[in-house]
């Protein structure tokens, strides 16, 4: 169900953006746009397919704990 919602969201958003913004921009801008969308889509699909993705919060906490004086 959630995977369906995510796919529908991305499809709707890209269709809308293509008509309103993307048909007027340069190739570099399109590349950056689609790359960011692809990263987000992959994270959301994996997360909703119950694939465990390491949380950045955990990494930040572990990195900070390694510093002296931070418990």
């Amino acid at each position: 169900m959630l995977i369906g919602i995510v796919l529908f969201l991305f499809l709707a958003v890209i269709l809308y953006d293509y008509n309103v913004y993307l048909n007027k921009v340069r190739v570099q801008e399109k590349v950056v746009y689609y790359s960011l969308m692809l990263i987000s889509l992959c994270i959301l699909l994996l997360q909703n397919a119950n694939v465990s993705i390491p949380s950045p919060a955990e990494a930040i906490i572990n990195a900070l704990r390694a510093l002296p004086g931070i418990q």
Partner: peptide, 19 residues
Amino acid sequence: RVFIMPVGMLALALSSILY
């Protein structure tokens, strides 16, 4: 303005894996 939606989606994806 073009990149507001992709960064929004990135924030959405990040918020789903943060906690």
